[in-house]
Design a protein around this nucleic acid. Structure first.
Length: 946
DNA sequence: GATGTCACG
DNA sequence: GACGTACGTGACATCA
């Protein structure tokens, strides 16, 4: 009897309410809602898994509420009377909680007339009395009354909030209530509880209640003192409502001496037997958990880098000779096992197989990379390791002398596949499934519901790549990292360069190996990565933000945006003419012809031949000729520098925009379709490629003409809505800076406010400096960096930084705390729980470390901003739809801006919906202390909409 | 394929 | 004492 017993009491009823509100509305294969049950199951899993850990349970029991009526209703009929009924799709989940508990072979206690809290109190006291430690798994404030340090003969009682992964003991109670646990009931009796309909003292809230109990030491003393208080509202209320407080004290008192329905010893946790757990997990489609149960963890050497969650191993008896068998996802890839589907019968067999599997991987093969133009060449499906097929649909045909291979007619095959791809009962996994969504959308074949291994990987591991190992989320990389397997590469089957052939020309045996392997690998990756989400805290951001965003962004890409080709062409010509003139002059200045676009040649001309002052830079030994350098030379009177700068600007605009955008117009739609990456930026921002529509010029007059070329379709206008100063607003909230928050609440100019705080005076110069400093703060600051930007000495810059921190101490605290947690945990987190990893934060290399530190300061702010606009995007079309504005098209996202296309007559109605969705996008998950300002404009072009 | 430059938030 | 000097991106031209 050496080791101390530790009883965990799970407040099951309270948990599922919270799980319901914090997890996605999942349904099982039979259509029963199971989101909350899933959350509950993973929580039990995690607790049971801690069996051998120091703080882990030796005994575990679940306590539930039997019914809504308890002895408290006999005392006070209105008790809990104004609780709204539970949500419709939560009701069927209550009985499943009992099923889940029994599936874990755990005791599940409930008693008529008693609330779960009373049973928990009684078990906790009984266990502590025999010197067991007790942990109550709940965050219910009423239960905080029970917390205690324990003594030599009495066990310790604490609480565990599994949602926040937080232990609650005396210091946490003191922080919340300002008093010791024994006095929590007195505080609660004064403040009351509107949810439970406990009256308390009318007009007394948590602050006043705490103060009264702190001052007087008990409820009775506080109430007695009222008579001697000087005249005040509070005095009146205490006197008038004394009876309410006394009634409340009774209601909040936990009954600690209930008869225990089963003895405490029966909570003994002895590992979880595989049955009936496996049956339960199967029935409700919790396949990812099921696989973990079957197999134990994967080979450690293949997964060390990413530390996947340890699988539950307790009670997995029956594996031969005690050896763990390899996980199914680790079964060696066998390409010869894949099937090529060339006739209808085989296809139908695979479709049935997919319906039965319920979780399948899908991959499309196409003739090109552009989802908006590529032809569909084939589809591959996987239902499990080495269970995969390829369905060729458009192979052969480029060579009129050889016969096309046998394959099912494309439209016939799609017709057969549509019910499967659209079925709610079958989850379709893809690696970058947005691509497949867009290709198949052009064949009238929607896919839903979906999962995306690339995005799951990103939500778990963004930023996690070590130097040289690679931290990307592409399939080949993920496959090597997690499966220890290099899939056939596209090059292997299609060749490269001039010899490259389109996928449709690849012989079917080879195409099957490649395509089916991709689906197989995707399926395996999903089974490894998806279970990590709930365990590592990634579910919220994946389910609530990134997964629902996929179809939204896909639709935006398909919409595209119209550009005025003639306008772009005019600009191209104009730029070319001016560049020609400049080129001649520059060559004259230089006394020779040279390639102006070559920094190497330019540097040699400027510094060697013409003898201007300037230094070498970097290990390449090249002269620097960038903007700041050329501006310095221009100040010295170098006319050539001015002309080179102008030439460069035009060259940039022409090559990157006016020429490239014309080439990017899709011949079928006449519009430009960008491709957004949801995993492109470590912070959670989107990025835009082919073409990049997130860096269209706006800052200079000449560049702005390019924005004029982005236009609305006839009869429509473009509407641009952007968050104003959102990053500074979030910084004010997250760092808790009262003066900045106040400035935003009052709609003040934030840079002027900063200038006033720092210099006591607002003029053009101080405002400009304040603006620079404000941004410097968001990016992590160094005295040299700031000095360079402001053109002052480093000492002076340091003085400004000191002054800033003095005026806004919250900012300094935020930076210190952020860095501390990142150093400790390895990642930063946004307000919505998105993680970004910083593996180099503790590097011995100073430059590397400081770079990570600056990025880590910025990531929570930039990332929270990204989360907010993503949430707005997810909600936007449903909101517009409800308002009868379903025809409004959302076209572009530029980090803090959304661009829409709509009939001119709808601008007013749409403006109010869009503003509302954007302004409230953080809610209800996060309540910001600052308002989110939205600026909206419209016009026939993007330029005019600003 | 690396490097330098510059467009955006 | 040197390092390299603001966060996050993508595209293009040049050159090895």
């Amino acid at each position: 009897m050496a080791e101390k017993q530790h009883l965990y009491l799970v407040d099951g009823s309270a948990y599922i309410f919270r799980a319901y509100h914090r997890l996605p509305p999942l349904t099982d294969p039979e259509g029963t809602p199971v989101g909350a049950v899933y959350g509950y199951t993973t929580m039990l899993w995690k607790l049971a898994e801690d069996l051998d850990k120091a703080e882990g349970p030796t005994h575990l029991g679940v306590i539930l509420d039997k019914s809504s009526h308890s002895f408290r209703n006999d005392i006070f009929p209105e008790y809990k009377a104004n609780r709204p009924p539970p949500p419709e799709d939560l009701v069927p989940q209550f009985p499943l909680i009992r099923d889940a508990t029994r599936a874990f072979s755990l005791e599940c206690i409930e008693e008529q007339g008693l609330e779960a809290d009373d049973l928990i109190a009684s078990y906790a006291r009984a266990a502590a009395a025999q010197n067991w430690d007790v942990t109550i798994v709940s965050s219910d404030k009423d239960l905080m009354q029970l917390i205690g340090e324990g003594s030599e003969s009495i066990g310790k009682i604490d609480m565990l909030d599994t949602m926040k992964n937080q232990r609650i003991s005396i210091p946490e109670v003191a922080e919340k209530f300002g008093v010791a646990p024994e006095l929590v009931g007195d505080v609660l009796a004064l403040m009351g509880d509107s949810v439970d309909n406990i009256p308390g003292i009318y007009g007394v809230g948590p602050k006043t209640a705490t103060k009264l109990i702190q001052e007087h030491g008990s409820l009775t003393a506080a109430l007695d003192s009222a008579a001697d208080m000087k005249k005040s509202k509070l005095k009146e209320r205490l006197l008038e409502h004394r009876a309410d407080a006394e009634l409340s004290r009774i209601l909040v008192t936990l009954k600690e001496d209930c008869d225990l329905p089963v003895p405490i010893e029966s909570f003994k946790l002895d590992g979880v037997p595989p049955e009936p757990l496996a049956t339960f997990l199967t029935k409700h489609g919790f396949t990812s958990l099921l696989r973990r149960l079957d197999t134990g963890s994967g080979s450690p050497e293949r997964t060390t880098n990413l530390n996947p969650a340890k699988a539950i191993t307790a009670g997995v008896a029956g594996t031969e000779k005690g050896n763990r068998q390899a996980s199914p996802e680790m079964t060696p890839i066998d390409r010869s096992a894949y099937e090529c589907v060339q006739d209808r019968e085989t296809l139908d067999r695979w479709i049935s197989k997919c319906f039965a599997a319920r979780v399948i991987a899908v991959d499309t093969e196409t003739s090109a990379l552009d989802a908006m133009q590529a032809d569909l060449v084939g589809i591959s499906l996987a239902t499990g390791p080495n269970e995969a097929c390829y369905i060729p649909l458009a192979h052969g045909g480029s060579d009129m002398f050889t016969e096309k291979p046998k394959q099912i007619d494309r439209e016939e095959a799609l017709e057969a596949l549509r019910p499967l791809l659209a079925s709610d009962a079958v989850l379709k996994i893809g690696q970058n499934i947005k691509y497949d969504l867009n290709v198949l959308a052009r064949y009238n074949t929607p896919i839903s519901p979906i999962d995306d291994t690339m995005i799951i990987s990103f939500d778990l591991d963004a930023g996690r790549g070590e130097a040289g190992i690679g931290g990307g989320h592409g399939m080949d990389e993920l496959s090597v990292r997690h499966l220890g397997h290099s899939p056939l590469s596209f090059k292997d089957v299609c060749g490269t360069g001039k010899k490259q052939i389109p996928f449709g020309e690849v012989p079917l045996d080879r195409a099957t190996e490649y395509a089916a392997e991709d689906a197989d690998v995707t399926w395996r990756l999903h089974s490894l990565l998806k279970p990590r989400l709930p365990i590592e805290g990634g579910t919220k951001v994946y389910e609530r933000v990134d997964r629902p965003l996929v179809p939204v962004v896909a639709q935006m890409e398909r919409h595209g945006i119209k550009v005025d080709r003639a306008q772009l062409s005019r600009l191209s010509e104009e730029f070319a003419t001016t560049m020609g003139t400049l080129e001649t002059q520059i060559h004259e200045d230089a006394g020779q012809e040279f390639s102006i676009g070559s920094p190497k040649q330019l540097g040699e001309i400027l510094f060697d031949k013409l003898g201007y002052k300037g230094g070498r830079k970097g290990k390449s030994g090249q002269y620097s000729t960038d903007l700041t350098m050329l501006e310095k030379l221009a100040e010295q009177g170098a006319g050539i520098a001015t002309r080179v700068l102008e030439w460069r600007q035009l060259a940039k605009l022409k090559s990157t925009y006016t020429d490239a955008l014309q080439a990017a117009i899709n011949p079928n739609t006449g519009r430009v379709h960008t491709s957004y990456s949801l995993v492109g930026a470590q912070t959670g921002r989107l990025s835009s490629t082919d073409p990049n529509l997130q860096n269209i010029p706006i800052r200079t007059e000449i560049g702005r003409q390019i924005r004029e070329a982005f236009v609305a379709d006839e009869g429509n206008v473009l509407l641009a809505a952007d968050y104003s100063q959102i990053e500074l607003r979030l910084a004010a909230h997250m760092a808790d800076v009262p003066s900045l928050k106040e400035a935003f609440e009052q709609g003040e100019d934030i840079h002027s406010r900063t200038a006033r705080e720092m210099y006591g005076e607002v003029n053009r110069e101080t405002r400009a400096q304040a603006k620079t400093i404000n941004f410097a703060i968001l990016y992590g600051i160094s005295r040299w960096g700031l000095a360079g930007r402001l053109g002052v000495e480093a000492d002076e810059a340091q003085a400004m930084i000191d002054r800033y921190f003095e005026r806004f101490p919250g900012i300094q605290r935020y930076i210190a705390e952020t860095l501390e947690t990142v150093r400790e945990r390895g990642y930063s987190e946004t307000l919505f729980g998105r993680k970004t990893w910083f593996p180099r934060i503790n590097s011995k290399n100073q430059a590397e470390r400081q770079g990570s530190e600056r990025a880590a300061i910025n990531a929570p702010i930039q990332g929270t901003c990204a989360d907010i606009i993503k949430r707005a995007m997810v909600r936007m079309m449903p909101a517009l739809d409800t308002a009868g504005l379903g025809h409004v098209r959302m076209l572009l996202q530029v980090h803090d801006e959304l661009v829409f296309e709509l009939p001119e007559g709808d601008v007013e109605a749409a403006t109010s919906i869009i503003r509302n969705v954007m302004a409230k996008a953080a809610e209800p998950a996060v309540k910001l202390d600052v308002p989110l300002g939205i600026e909206i404009g419209s016009g026939t072009s993007w330029g005019a909409a600003h």
